[in-house]
Amino acid sequence: MLDVTTSGTTIRLRTGGSGPALLLLHGYPQTHVLWHRIAPRLAERFTVVAADLRGYGDSGKPETDAQHMPYSKRAMANDMAEVMTALGHEQFFLGAHDRGARVSHRLALDHPGRVRKLATLDIAPTREMYRDTTDAFARAYWHWFYLITPAPFPERMIGADPDAYWLKKCGSGAAGLNPFSPEALAEYLRCFRNPATIHASCEDYRAGAAVDIVHDDEDGGRKLDMPLLALWGENGVIGKCFDPLALWRERASDVRGHPLPGGHYLAEEVPDLVASEFEAFFT
Rank of each mutant, 00 (worst) to 15 (best):
D254S: 04
R251K: 08
G27K: 05
L266M: 13
P261L: 02
R131D: 11
H111S: 09
W248V: 03
V83Q: 09
G159E: 09
H111D: 15
P150D: 08
Y56W: 13
L118C: 13
N235Q: 14
V237R: 06
L273D: 13
I38M: 12
R99L: 09
L24E: 08
A50R: 05
Y188D: 09
V103N: 15
M80L: 11
M226S: 13
A210H: 15
C170L: 07
D79T: 11
T64W: 00
H258M: 04
G100K: 11
D212E: 08
A174Y: 01
T197D: 03
V103Y: 11
L231P: 07
T120Q: 11
L229E: 03
C170Y: 00
P70T: 05
E63H: 05
A124C: 06
V214I: 10
I238V: 15
T64A: 13
R251L: 03
P195Y: 05
C170T: 12
E183W: 02
A196L: 11
M157D: 05
G221T: 01
Y56M: 15
H143G: 15
F278T: 00
G100A: 11
R114Q: 15
F137M: 10
A96K: 14
G17R: 07
G113K: 11
P179F: 02
E218T: 06
R251F: 00
R190I: 02
L22T: 04
L273E: 13
N194C: 13
S201N: 12
K117G: 10
I238Y: 13
Y146D: 10
D243F: 04
G233L: 07
V103L: 15
T5D: 08
A151C: 01
T126E: 10
A151F: 03
G113A: 12
A43L: 08
F153W: 12
L25I: 10
L34C: 04
M69T: 11
G171Y: 02
A207L: 01
A96M: 14
M157W: 07
D219M: 10
G262R: 05
D204S: 06
L177C: 12
G16T: 07
R249T: 05
A119R: 12
R139H: 11
R156T: 12
L22I: 10
H68M: 03
T283D: 13
A175E: 05
